[in-house]
Computed example of a mutant assay.
Amino acid sequence: MTPITTTAELMAFCDKLKGQPFVAVDTEFMRETTYWPKLCLIQAAAPGVEAAIDPLADGIDLEPFLVVLRDPAILKVFHAARQDVEIFNNLSAMPTPLFDTQVAGMAAGFGEQIAYDALVRQMLKIELDKSSRFTDWARRPLSDNQLTYAIADVTHLAELYPMLRKRLEDEGRLAWVTDEMASLNDPANYDVDPENAWKRLRPRRHTSKYLSVYRAVAAWRERTAQTRDQPRGRILKDEAIDEIATQAPTDAEQLDRLRSAPKGFSGSRYGPELLSAIREALKDHEAYAPVIERARHAPSPAAGAVVELLKVLLKARAEEAGVASKLIATVSDLELIANSDEAATAALTGWRREAFGEDALKLKRGELALVLDGARVRVVEVRRAPKAST
């Protein structure tokens, strides 16, 4: 197999994709030592046509394929799409609309975050060759075995999609995954603005001084990682951001006292830049500190126990429905429900409320009980005795 290496070849291939109902897409990339993922190969397949595209080929312009990704008339099919979508979003080509077979598999009863090879095995009865799984995709030339391995991902993905979609339609569950698919297209998920970097982390305090330094350090790390094209963790660990925000060092001596700061950090090329960012944030920490909305309801003393009961209920209802529990609710959702019947969570809206949310509220009110029946948990209604008349 020969990959596409010229813009002319790519244009000819993309002409064949026009008018197709869908295109299956996968990528091979490297990012172990970089901030920005290095796109090494793009695989695409639609009914009757497939190809591997070499984005590292000298002089190739990917724009013809990016146009396909932007085309709202062509559905883009991925498996575990988030990292692929991030790459194309960085190229200003958000794949829209999108269908993720991993998310769909959760609704179709294949478990939580099912791997691609497992889905192929269960639905197509094919065992994938994994011999090229850990290939250095940046090296050239790629062997025939490597290219065959890579293109197989979209070949089978193009077969899986119609089967999986029909299964969801037949079971009335296609709408169950619509919100999940839409969220994958939300640009906010791939925001690389350094000033928003703190949102991916978990600040532990709420004072304006702490939050202003926290935001400043997270922004400095993000900006430095982008500029130097290095992973965030190589610049500064997450736990160091919390300690720096707590102590708010403003000179080299204070910075060197921190346990989480690497030895000699203040004297490195990073130290002066970081201290400058901290001092700037502290000039008006109340204005610079991000606003974090606090919970409107105080945590219930019994919330921990309620969450544990809700976990059991969720597992029981998910098994009955044949759907991955994560698609219905997360632990964060359960914590919100445990503290408030009016919690702002998707688990209390739409089909999720029907499948689980309403029962969760009934369990809190004592209207449902969890009964162990052998190795299985049953959910039963609690019949309350009528009040005695006076």
Rank of each mutant, 00 (worst) to 15 (best):
C14R: 08
A108K: 03
P97W: 06
V85E: 01
L17R: 03
A107M: 01
M94I: 03
L69Q: 13
A107R: 13
M11K: 12
P21G: 12
C14V: 09
F65R: 15
D100H: 01
R31F: 11
D100E: 13
V49K: 04
R70V: 08
L56V: 08
D15N: 05
V103G: 02
V49D: 06
R70M: 10
A107N: 04
A52I: 09
T6A: 10
G111M: 10
P3T: 13
G111W: 07
V103D: 01
D100N: 01
M94R: 05
G48W: 13
F99W: 06
V103S: 00
V77P: 00
F29M: 06
D26T: 12
A81H: 04
I42Y: 14
D71K: 01
L62A: 00
I4K: 06
E28L: 14
V77L: 09
V23C: 14
F29P: 13
F110R: 02
G19P: 14
R82S: 01
A104Y: 00
D71P: 13
A93H: 05
L62C: 08
D71E: 11
R70L: 09
V85T: 03
A93Q: 11
P3S: 14
P47Y: 07
G111S: 11
F88Q: 01
A51D: 11
I42Q: 12
A93V: 11
E112C: 00
M94V: 05
F22A: 06
P47H: 15
N90S: 15
A81K: 02
T5I: 03
F22E: 07
F78Y: 00
A8Q: 15
M11G: 14
A107D: 00
G105P: 03
S92G: 08
L39H: 07
P97N: 09
I4T: 05
R70Q: 13
A8Y: 04
V103W: 02
A51K: 03
E63N: 13
M11R: 15
N89Y: 00
P72S: 14
I4W: 08
D15Q: 10
V67E: 14
C14S: 10
A81L: 15
A108C: 04
L56P: 10
T6Y: 06
G19R: 05
E28G: 03
A93N: 11
D71V: 08
E32L: 11
M94F: 07
L41N: 12
F78W: 04
A52N: 12
I74M: 02
Q43D: 02
T5K: 15
D54R: 13
I42W: 01
E28W: 10
V68I: 09
L17K: 05
T34G: 00
L62F: 05
A24S: 15
F29N: 11
G111A: 12
P37C: 13
A44T: 12
P47M: 10
F22M: 07
H79R: 04
D54S: 09
I74W: 08
T96M: 04
P97Y: 08
V25P: 01
I42F: 04
D71R: 00
V68D: 06
F22H: 14
G48V: 00
M94H: 04
T7E: 00
M106A: 10
D54M: 10
A24E: 03
D71A: 07
T96I: 08
T2Q: 12
P3H: 13
D84Y: 12
V68S: 04
G59F: 07
V68Y: 10
